[in-house]
Design a protein around this nucleic acid. Structure first.
Lengths: 217, 217
DNA sequence: ACCTGAACACCGTTCAAGT
DNA sequence: ACCTGAACACCGTTCAAGT
C-alpha cells in the first residue's frame, strides 16, 4: 500500500486495540508492532500518535482510571467513608478486569489527569472529615497504596495460575513443603479474596478516620 | 572458546550479576543475554541454571526477601506492633534500594519460600495479639498490600524522574494545569515520603489491632 | 552436566523517502 | 500530517552438536 494520509485513526482507537490485545494475549503481547498490525498500520506509523511505547501504556492507564465515578465520590450527601469504599472497590475491579492492567500501573508514574483527579478527590474527601491537609494527603496516599498493592498481589497470583496451572510448585527448589502451618490453615478456611480486600480497607479507614470527624464510627 | 564443562558458576552468581545490571542500567536491561554476557557465557548456557527469564526474576525477588530479619520479627519480647513496623520499613527500604525491584515483585507471584515465610511471620504476629486466624490472615494480606503498593508508587515516581527529568509534564495532552489545588498545596508542605509511609502504616495497624489485644493502643 | 553456534520469531526505535 | 520500507540494535527461546 502506498504512503500518504489515510482515513484518520485516533489515539483512542489505538488504546482500544491495545486493550483488546491485552485481554486476549496478555501484557507481553502488547507491542507497538502488534497494535500496529491489528490496525493495519506499519509500526513506524504508530509514532505519529504516541512518541513511545511508554506513552501508549500511560494512555492505557488513564483510560482505566477515566471510568471511575469521581462525581459519585464527591457527593457530600453520602458518608465519606462509604464513598471512598465504593471508589476503592470500583478501582480494584477495574484493575482486575484487565489481566495485565496492574503491570501497566506499575510500569509508569500515576501522573496523568485522571490519576491526579483521583488523588484530588481522595484528599478532598478526607479534609471534609476535618482532617488537616497534610494528614489528608497522607491518608490519600495510604488508600492508593493499599488498593494498588492489593491489585498487584491479585494480578500476580492470577498471572501465575494462567501461566503454569494451579497446582504446580517449583521443581524442588525448596524441600520443606509444610513449614507454614498458619498460612496453610488460613488458606483452607478462606477463599473470599474480595471480602478480604474490603475488610482490610475498612480497617485502614478505621485507623485513618479515628478521632478526626463525627462521621468516623 | 570451546564447549564443555567450565569452572561452575552458581545460581547465586547469576542472581548477583543480574542485580548489578539492574542497579546500573535499570530493569529493562536485565536480560538473559545481558547477564550471560556479563558472566562470559553464551545466552543458551543460562538455561542450564534457570529454565526461563521469569525464573531468574523470581530468584531475584527471593533474594530481596531473603535479607529480611524475620527472626527479629518473631521475637516475642518486643511488641508486635513495633515488630511489624520494623519489618515493613525494612521491606520497603529493600524494595527501594534497587531501582527496579518493584517491577520484579509485580512481575510474578510472591510464592517463593522467603515470601511464604514472610506471610507466615505476619500471620503469627497477628494471632499473638489474640486475633482469630481468619482475621490474622487478612491482616497480613492488608499489610503486604500496603507495603507493596507504597513501594510501587515510589518506584513509579522515581522511574519517571530518572527517565525524563523532574520538571517535564506531558506535551499539552491536558491543558488545565492548576485544577488540583489540594494536591498542589499538600505537595508544597510535604516532602517526607518516608514519614508518610510510616504514618499510613501506623494508621493501618491502628485499625487492624483495634480492640483485639491489650498491646493495641 | 555444561557449554557453543546457528537459528527462529520476535522487539522498540530511527531515518530517509513518498504523497 | 500521515504513512511506507529498510535498517539498527536488541530480545527470549530452541535445537543440534561438541566435550
Amino acid at each position: 500500500m502506498k504512503p500518504g494520509p489515510r482515513r484518520s485513526i485516533s489515539q483512542t482507537d489505538i488504546v482500544e486495540t491495545a486493550f483488546e490485545i491485552l485481554e486476549q494475549k496478555g501484557f507481553a503481547a502488547v507491542s507497538i508492532r502488534g497494535v500496529a498490525a491489528a490496525l493495519g498500520l506499519t509500526p513506524t506509523a504508530m509514532y505519529t500518535y504516541f512518541p513511545s511505547k511508554n506513552a501508549l501504556l500511560r494512555a492505557m492507564v488513564e483510560q482505566v482510571l477515566a471510568g471511575l465515578d469521581l462525581e459519585g465520590a464527591a457527593d457530600a450527601d453520602v458518608d465519606w467513608r462509604d464513598r471512598v469504599l465504593a471508589l476503592a472497590v470500583d478501582l480494584r475491579s477495574r484493575l482486575a478486569a484487565h489481566a495485565g492492567a496492574m503491570l501497566l500501573v506499575t510500569s509508569g508514574p500515576l501522573d496523568g489527569p485522571h490519576a491526579r483527579r483521583l488523588t484530588e478527590t481522595l484528599i478532598a474527601g478526607f479534609t471534609s472529615e476535618r482532617m488537616p491537609l497534610a494528614d489528608a494527603a497522607r491518608a490519600a496516599d495510604a488508600v492508593r497504596a493499599y488498593v494498588l498493592g492489593a491489585a498487584a498481589l491479585d494480578a500476580a497470583v492470577r498471572a501465575a495460575e494462567a501461566s503454569e496451572g494451579p497446582a504446580t510448585a517449583g521443581p524442588a527448589l525448596w524441600t520443606e513443603a509444610t513449614a507454614h502451618p498458619l498460612t496453610d490453615a488460613a488458606a483452607e478456611l478462606d477463599g473470599d479474596a474480595d471480602g478480604g480486600f474490603a475488610w482490610g480497607l475498612d480497617r485502614l479507614l478505621d485507623g485513618l478516620l479515628a478521632g478526626v470527624g463525627a462521621s468516623a464510627t
